[in-house]
Design a protein around this nucleic acid. Structure first.
Length: 112
DNA sequence: AATCTGACGGGCA
DNA sequence: GTGCCCGCCAGAT
């Protein structure tokens, strides 16, 4: 249960927690996680949090609002992110997840 | 101490 | 549809 109260400079932990809940074969966005955690947490903060994501967090399942693999450069190798996603059944064309609307997982609803 | 940057996103021109 | 601006806050310079 992530805290949505006042100043949490620990939201990174919440971000990681939510990221781990993303089902295999589904993806979510930085903004969706941010919205779920609360108003003070913005997509940028989520991005920052992912920067320090511990092992076990499926960071490849988190993309930007357009379904683009904006963070692939931060993986061990840029191809890794796409490869993992394709392995989970996603189609990716030009760094963009196809059928994004269908595989999108919204924590605010699915996890509400 | 001050400033810039960033795995982003929404709003407006 | 494209592009610029602003906000949010923690690191890095």
């Amino acid at each position: 249960m992530p805290s949505t109260e006042k100043t949490n400079h620990n939201f990174a932990l919440d971000v990681h927690e939510v990221a781990k809940l993303v089902p295999r074969g589904r993806v979510t966005s930085y903004g969706a996680i941010a919205h779920y955690l609360g108003k003070r947490v913005t997509a940028r903060m989520v991005g920052w949090a992912m920067h320090a994501c511990p092992p076990g967090v499926p960071a490849h399942r988190v993309v930007n609002s357009k379904g683009i693999l904006s963070g692939k450069q931060h993986f061990k190798t840029p191809e890794l992110m796409q490869k993992l996603l394709e392995k989970e059944g996603h189609q990716i064309v030009d760094d963009k997840i196809q059928r994004f609307g269908d595989v999108f997982w919204n924590p605010s609803e699915e996890l509400a």
